[in-house]
C-alpha cells in the first residue's frame, strides 16, 4: 500500500496529476461529441497542425499558446472550407491540410534556433510541467468546461440532428465553430501537458467506452470522464513505478479500460451475446 502511495508524496507528481486530470476531464467530455459526430480525424489533425503556429509565435515573440490555437483552429477551418468549395471529401481535406502544416512546421523548426522542443510537443512532459504552463492549462481547461456546461445541450442537438437545430433557431454554423474552438483550445492545453498522441487518444477512446456502456448522452459523459480519470491516475502510477513513458502508460490504461468495456457492455458486450436486432 505504501509503495502505491509513494509517488504522490512528490510535489511534481501531484501537479502532474492535477493537470492530467483537468485535461482528461475536458477531453473526455469532448470525446463524446467527437465519437458521435464522426470527427476522430479532427483531433489527430488539429493536434499536429499546431506545430507551425508554435514556431511562428516563437519567432515573432507572441505567446506560444496563441500561435498554437490559431494554427489548430485554422487547420479545422481550412479543411471545412476545402470541403465546402471543392469535390474533396472532408477526411482527405483534413489529411492534406494537417500533414502540410506539420511539414511546414518541421521545416521552420530546422531553420530557426528556438527553444521549442519537438519531443515535448509530440510526447508532452506532464511530469516536468512548468509553473506557467500549469496555470495556463488549468485556465484553458476551466474555460472549456464552462462553455460545455453552458452550451452542451445545443451541441448534442447539433451532433444528433443539425436540421432540427437549425429549425429550433440555433445558429448551426456558430455551434460548429464553438465546438471546433473548444476542441482546438483543449488540444492546445493538452498537447503541452500530455503530448500529441495522448491528446488524440483522450479525444476518442473515453467517448467510445461511454458509448459501449451507456445509452443516454448524460450517462455516456459520466462514463467517459470516469474512464479518462481512472486511466490518468493508473497511467501516472505505472509510469512512475516502471519508469515508463507517462503518455504511453496512460494510453495503454485507456486501451485496457476499452477492452474491459467491450467485454461487459450491457447491449454490445461480448460476454452477453444476444442476436442483433434485424435492422
Amino acid at each position: 500500500m505504501n509503495a502505491l502511495l509513494a509517488p504522490w508524496t512528490h510535489g511534481f507528481m501531484v501537479d502532474a496529476l492535477v493537470v492530467g486530470l483537468m485535461v482528461a476531464v475536458l477531453a473526455a467530455i469532448l470525446s463524446c461529441f467527437v465519437v458521435l459526430k464522426g470527427w476522430s480525424l479532427m483531433g489527430d489533425a488539429v493536434s499536429h497542425a499546431i506545430l507551425p503556429g508554435v514556431v511562428i509565435a516563437y519567432l515573432v515573440g507572441a505567446p506560444l499558446v496563441i500561435g498554437a490555437f490559431v494554427a489548430g483552429f485554422g487547420c479545422a477551418l481550412a479543411s471545412g472550407a476545402i470541403r465546402a468549395t471543392s469535390r474533396i471529401k472532408e477526411d482527405a481535406a483534413m489529411g492534406v491540410v494537417f500533414s502540410g502544416m506539420f511539414a511546414v512546421g518541421l521545416i521552420l523548426l530546422t531553420q530557426v534556433r528556438s527553444n521549442v522542443h519537438l519531443s515535448h510537443v509530440l510526447f508532452g512532459s506532464i511530469l516536468g510541467i512548468e509553473d506557467e504552463d500549469f496555470w495556463q492549462t488549468l485556465a484553458i481547461a476551466g474555460g472549456g468546461l464552462l462553455i460545455l456546461a453552458l452550451r452542451g445541450r445545443d451541441l448534442v442537438l447539433f451532433c444528433f440532428d443539425p436540421g432540427q437545430a437549425r429549425i429550433a433557431g440555433l445558429k448551426v454554423g456558430r455551434l460548429r465553430l464553438l465546438l471546433l474552438a473548444v476542441l482546438a483550445a483543449s488540444i492546445v492545453a493538452g498537447v503541452q501537458a500530455v503530448g500529441v498522441i495522448l491528446v488524440v487518444a483522450l479525444l476518442i477512446t473515453p467517448g467510445a467506452i461511454g458509448l459501449l456502456l451507456a445509452d443516454r448522452f448524460g450517462r455516456m459523459v459520466w462514463v467517459a470522464v470516469a474512464a479518462a480519470c481512472l486511466a490518468t491516475v493508473a497511467g501516472i502510477q505505472v509510469s512512475f513505478m516502471l519508469d515508463a513513458s507517462t503518455a504511453g502508460s496512460i494510453v495503454l490504461a485507456l486501451s485496457v479500460l476499452f477492452i474491459a468495456a467491450l467485454l461487459v457492455s450491457p447491449r454490445h458486450g461480448l460476454l452477453r451475446r444476444r442476436p442483433r436486432a434485424p435492422w
Binding site: 467527437v34 464522426g38 476522430s40 476518442i204 477512446t205 467510445a208 494510453v251 485507456l254 457492455s265
Partner: peptide, 15 residues
C-alpha cells in the same frame, strides 16, 4: 460494436 468506423480506427491506432 455500435462505434463508428472512424472512432474505432482512432481507438486502435492510439492504443
Amino acid at each position: 460494436t455500435p462505434i463508428r468506423e472512424d472512432a474505432v480506427i482512432g481507438v486502435v491506432f492510439t492504443g
